[in-house]
Amino acid sequence: MLAIVSRAENQVEIVFGTDAYYGKEISVDEMRFRRFMSIACGLACMGAMVTGDLFDFTLFVSLVGICNVGIVAAVKTKHVQNAAFQYGIVALTATVPLFGGAAITAATTGTLSMIALGTALAGPVPFIAQAALVLGVMGEGMAPFYAAKAEMFRAPGAPYVIMCSFSSLLIFLRVVEVVLTI
């Protein structure tokens, strides 16, 4: 109840040293768009968590990346736009090691199924493919660089921005599990 009444999505900035404060208005349209992006991001996260195929996993991870960009890109603040752009190009670059890792795995072992890779039947997955997968997920989710991601969190609209950090945490956990399995 308190959360509904207080309208947590509206950001209030207080001018330091005085009593003045000003709130930031957010249009319904913007909220609706960001809600759509968060739902898509949640579904992509779910897909990345449950999939048993390496290439599907990389595709879901890049979907999470672009949804994260979408959640913050709708904000009109210049600073946030700038951060979203920088984050977006990192996410786009991260698809290179992601797809590269999956392709190297397929070429050296002849399969993409994580279950088949987990058994001893398929040959060992080369170290470079595992490293590429981890680096790709780090780029998509910005996993260790939360300091830079905090710039994005200055975007108003509390409930949806949480989805960014939550999803990147989830996919990072999942890639660790994948790399330990294969």
Binding site: L59, V69, A73, G88, I89, L92, T95
Partner: peptide, 13 residues
């Protein structure tokens, strides 16, 4: 995927 993200990023730019 490359084309799609480029589309979104160029609009952000």
């Amino acid at each position: 995927v490359g084309i799609a993200e480029l589309l979104a990023l160029s609009h952000i730019y």
